[in-house]
Amino acid sequence: MKRLTMLLLFTSLFGYAQIDYKGLVKNLEDITYETDIKAHFKGIPFNEEYSEIEFNDERFLRFYGVIVNKVTFSDSWNGKVINIKPFNENADYEKIKAKLFELYGEPETSERTTRIRYEWETDNKQILLSINLQGEEEEEEEKEETVQGVFKDFDSLTIVLKQE
């Protein structure tokens, strides 16, 4: 009985003032060249410096369902650049990679002992995913086979949205 009334009390006291956190969550993959960033992220605080807009509250940032630590938007000569910084979790990396492979097919790949880079390009966007690998720097020989390195951290995850 007591717990019930407490629960009721809190929902009634804070219910109206509580921020709708779920409603604020934004999927970064939905953003297109035409998206007005400030309007799209309305209600979420941001930093703006030299016309680069940064959002850093991971509670509201998702990229194909993966929680994103930080994202920045800026304009460059070839389009709108989205720089995504996920947390350095292997599972997140696998999830993002699988999703990108599924959507955009085989990428252009460059692999070294310490880094893997995937690049996809379509008519309206260019995606770059690169990660650093674990382990000591072994001999600098180019290996023919796929490198069986272990994920260390994200090097960069960048999307350039091109003007059509």
Binding site: A17, Q18, I19, I44, P45, N47
Partner: peptide, 13 residues
């Protein structure tokens, strides 16, 4: 954090 945000609004980290 959520009580403060309810009181004062969201703010940057």
């Amino acid at each position: 954090l959520e009580s403060l945000e309810a009181e004062k609004g969201l703010t940057n980290i």
